[in-house]
Design a protein around this nucleic acid. Sequence first.
DNA 1: CGGTCTCTTGACGGAGTTCAAAGCTAGTGG
DNA 2: CCACTAGCTTTGAACTCCGTCAAGAGACCG
Lengths: 193, 193
Amino acid sequence: MQAFLKYINDHALKPISKEDFEVLQGHFVYKKLRKKQYLLENGEVCRYFAFILKGAMRKYYVDEKGTEHIVNLFIENWWAGDTESFTMLSPSIYNIDAWEDSEVLLITHENATKLTKLFPAFKEMLLKMDEKHKIATQKRITSSISFTAEKRYANFLDCHSDFLQRFPQHIIASYLGITKETLSRIRNQFPQK
Amino acid sequence: MQAFLKYINDHALKPISKEDFEVLQGHFVYKKLRKKQYLLENGEVCRYFAFILKGAMRKYYVDEKGTEHIVNLFIENWWAGDTESFTMLSPSIYNIDAWEDSEVLLITHENATKLTKLFPAFKEMLLKMDEKHKIATQKRITSSISFTAEKRYANFLDCHSDFLQRFPQHIIASYLGITKETLSRIRNQFPQK
DNA sequence: CGGTCTCTTGACGGAGTTCAAAGCTAGTGG
DNA sequence: CCACTAGCTTTGAACTCCGTCAAGAGACCG
């Protein structure tokens, strides 16, 4: 829980006080998730965004053939959810589940809005998080339309080497938009990183 | 210019008054761009975000081989810029230029921040714009990692048929991450849309 | 142990790229 | 009004990267 306080203060101009943090905390629901447990299932409305205190999660969608496509990977200090469903209240096409046993803080849209009004630090944190998210997705689009599989993987190693120890290769492959076999071959061409 | 007022009010909860809009307008610089003229060049810092009143623009980056990769396409009522460079003041890797003769409203980061504080309607507009942007990029990532070229094009027709009349095929192809030849062949398989 | 999950390797096939050539269109200047 | 050019689209042929399918080999866990 201290991790969350630190996270907010790292992203805010003025730190939030201990007392304010107590109030803020009250707007979240703490939840434990076992491996494979869903945070969001295809067809549901995403009613909570989750701040990950501990663990690892994945967001994916399943196509007509039943193949899973990893859209995002999350670990500690990341936010997991489906923005579209969360803000439009539309049923989500994504699934989010725990890849490791995890602990998360859940917040509703309503409470999030309320907190941005109560605590400037919280609002600033959200804004910064948004910026980071925007930049990251822009990079990912750029790389996915213009790089080869090999470069995308090299790029992934630069940006997200922390995922490597947490997720198996076939998950990473799917995240990169390639098959596990292709990733395996790419890795065996490199001497080693 | 009325278009911009309308745009803000369409995206805000409470409309902005005529008088306020005058003040707001004063924080923008009006600029005309001739076809092929740059709004942002590779290596520069993106000091302005541009609201497009009229015209069409493209954002792209050039790889080591000198090939252009279209990252975004913009027409009237869109915002063009490089978020990463704009907020971090880092040199941009992208180019943005006018595809048609265009008219834009430029705003600095400083002025944008100021306006969000002065006018709630402006802030709400930015937030909504962000949401839309986030949802769109998420969809684009999903489609680029999991769809075939043909499906990506079908998807593009659904979402952005308005671009079809404004940009030539080789630009659209690059936007989709495929070659102009492939796009040409895909189009000739369909009866017609 | 025996199952489930994971990674690797090989052979084949297909989607998409590359390169080259030709046709098509619209704009420009004589 | 025609000739010329530049930009755009199409088509074909060869090639390449990557996906698919199939099989085997570790690794981990109950």
